[in-house]
Design a protein around this nucleic acid. Structure first.
Lengths: 185, 185
DNA sequence: GTCTATATGTTGATAGAC
DNA sequence: GTCTATCAACATATAGAC
């Protein structure tokens, strides 16, 4: 009997994937438990409610967002930092067209209920905006925040339209345009 | 006893509002029936399944999209047509921040299930892209489709980010930027 | 066409043995 | 900590009287 089990982590991982692929409302606790190979009744030892699982998943996504931004953060050139983010998304174009943006999906689904989860989900978007605002500011732009909002909006938007058309090349082309835009800013 | 009742229409109207405000999955047939003041059991006289209601709602949204685009369609100046669409959205900025974009919400929620509803929802986005492609083409742009995708993406994206920040002024400012962009295109 | 009553299935959550 | 069994609530959908 291990003093520490990885079941909690397995549950979060399973929930994260399922929420992304099927949405929060469509994913049942039975789904999560089965995917994580945990008995249904045992889920409640780790999480008091379904919302608690959702909260943990959003926290995980927040950590992922931080990791991505951190990995793109080079102290020398803020412009390169921004381009790095776009290139990273470009590398996952197929995934974005296939399953959509995990952050955008969470925001859209939780944007309606005004539970604490709503603000937590929107925090994922605000974190990106804040980071980009910092970079555009370092580039000497007075309108740094507006530019940050614009770029995050475009990233979210092109993900949706590319999905609607079902064309990953379209998404890559739009991201190339954004990269070019940032480089000539 | 009227030969024709408006119950079907009332049900669609109620469902349209509720889907927008709470989402499809969170809205029950009981909700719809109560809002439309129709007995629950009577709903099934008008719609065979819940998906049938959803389909009818999306069709209504499609008609709305067509109406908006038609009302912005002046044969003389394609640039003015595009600007009109943006101004119309600008006039509803508060509504977009409060409840989100109805089209974007439907796409996001139905984007995962690959029922016939998915393609129907994405058709709302494609209709906008096609209309804008036509206008940008009439403006002599070779990259008309890419511009159309870009603009629809931005409209969808700024709606989400403005919601995340909870600021209607931000949305208006971003739309002003887009209007300016189209005018100098 | 309209209603009440109910079948049928699913879900989040709990009880309690081990 | 883990499991099986199950509850209570709610959802979609149907049956059948009027």
């Amino acid at each position: 009997m291990p003093r520490t089990s990885d079941k909690r982590e397995r549950l979060i991982t399973a929930a994260k994937t399922l929420f992304h692929e099927q949405g929060l409302a469509q994913t049942t606790l039975a789904d999560i438990a089965a995917t994580a190979r945990v008995a249904l009744g045992n889920v409640y030892y780790y999480f008091k409610t379904k919302d608690d699982i959702a909260s943990a998943v959003i926290a995980e996504r927040a950590a992922e967002v931080r990791d991505v931004l951190d990995s793109c953060d080079c102290a020398s050139c803020p412009r390169e930092c921004v381009v790095s983010v776009l290139k990273k998304m470009r590398g996952r174009a197929a995934e974005y067209v296939d399953k959509g943006c995990p952050v955008g999906a969470l925001c859209q689904e939780l944007g309606r209920s005004d539970s604490p989860l709503t603000d937590q989900a929107y925090g994922l978007v605000r974190a990106q905006i804040d980071w980009l605002t910092d970079k555009f500011g370092a580039m000497g732009r007075r309108d740094a925040r507006d530019l940050a909002v614009q770029l995050v909006s475009e990233m979210q938007g092109v993900s949706l339209t590319a999905r609607a058309i079902g064309d990953a090349r379209l998404l890559r082309r739009q991201l190339d345009r954004l990269i070019e835009w940032v480089e000539t800013l």
